[in-house]
Each structure stands twice: as structure tokens, then as C-alpha cells.
Simulated scan of single mutants.
Amino acid sequence: MEPESAGGSPDRRGVLIAGMALLACLGLLGYGILNTDEQPKPRAVPTAEVTYEVTGTGTVEVWYLARNEAGTATVEKAVTLPWTKSVQVPLGKAPTVAVVLDGKGGQASCTLAIRGKHVQRATAMGEFGRATCTGALPDDNG
């Protein structure tokens, strides 16, 4: 039998420490796999369908609000008319479409429909003419 030192064999200590580290890692891995508490998902923002339409002559820049919780506008440049877009807009945001004619002028009308109902129409004319249509979104019931 080999004599054992007071602190135990250096080989045994290394194996013991490695085993404890392995058990700790397996414990953390098991906790991650077995911890099935799902984090609450952010609530979906209710939306309404909005149809924007721009008709007329000339080339225009169109700005419109679509599904974006931040409420920032989407811009389409050098649009040839006619142009139509149906999008989802978050309730609480005012659906808006704006049209700006280029330097060649022309005439353009924007229209706005919420859930299929016409809300507003506006017309832009001449060089860099502008028109904006906006509306209010009904609640989920209306």
C-alpha cells in the first residue's frame, strides 16, 4: 500500500475538482432545459386595415403610415401614378398618407379608406404641390 499524504493525492484532488465542476455545469444545463417558465410575450398591438390611394398625373413622393409601433412613416420616392397600398395601422395612430409632386408639377389626389370606408380626399397641384389625407381609427368594435 502506498503512503498517502495528509492532504490527499494531487491526482485525486484534480479529479475531485473536475468532477465538481462537471456537476455544476450539468446542474446549470439541467436548469436551463427544465426551467420551462416562458417569459410573457409582448401583447400584439391591435390594428385596422387602411387603404391609401394616389391618383393623377406626374411623378410623386408618397409618405404613409403602416404597421409600426413607433409610428414612423414609410416613404416611396419617384412613384408613377396611380398607386394603391393596403396596410395594417396600429390603433391609436392616425393613418396618414401625404403626396408631394415633383418639380414638373401635375395633379395628384390622395384618398384614405379605413376598413373599407372612405374617410378623406385631398388634391395637390403644380410644382411641388402637396396634399395630405388623415383619419381616426375606430376601436376594435367599430
Rank of each mutant, 00 (worst) to 15 (best):
G8E: 05
G135C: 06
P90L: 02
G116D: 04
D139W: 06
E2D: 06
V54R: 02
L91Y: 06
A113C: 03
L91D: 01
E49Y: 11
A70L: 12
Y64L: 11
A131G: 05
M20T: 14
S9G: 04
E49W: 09
Q107D: 13
L101V: 10
V62R: 00
A108F: 03
A94F: 09
D140K: 13
S5V: 07
T72R: 09
G103R: 05
V87A: 11
T74H: 04
K117N: 08
T111V: 07
A66E: 14
S86M: 11
N68Q: 07
A124Y: 02
T132C: 01
A24W: 09
T36H: 03
G56C: 04
R13I: 09
T80L: 11
P95H: 04
G135A: 08
G116T: 09
G8W: 01
T134N: 03
D102C: 12
A21D: 02
L28I: 11
L22C: 10
V60K: 00
M1K: 07
L16M: 09
I33D: 05
L16N: 12
S5H: 06
P42Y: 12
V87N: 05
R67V: 02
G116V: 08
C133T: 06
R43G: 09
L26T: 13
G71N: 02
T74I: 08
P10N: 03
S109A: 13
V50S: 03
E4Q: 15
A73N: 05
T134P: 00
G30S: 13
M125F: 05
N68F: 05
T36W: 01
G142D: 14
G92K: 07
L81C: 05
Y31R: 07
T57V: 08
D11V: 11
M20W: 11
L22V: 13
Q39N: 13
F128M: 12
D102M: 10
G56S: 08
V119H: 01
V75H: 05
A6N: 06
A6D: 12
A48P: 05
R67D: 15
M125Q: 10
G142L: 14
P95E: 07
Q107V: 15
G14M: 08
G116P: 04
A48L: 11
A94H: 12
E38D: 15
T36D: 06
G56W: 00
F128Q: 14
A136F: 05
P46H: 12
A136T: 15
T134I: 03
R130M: 14
A18D: 10
H118A: 15
S86T: 15
V99W: 01
G32Y: 07
T123K: 09
L101D: 04
L29Y: 11
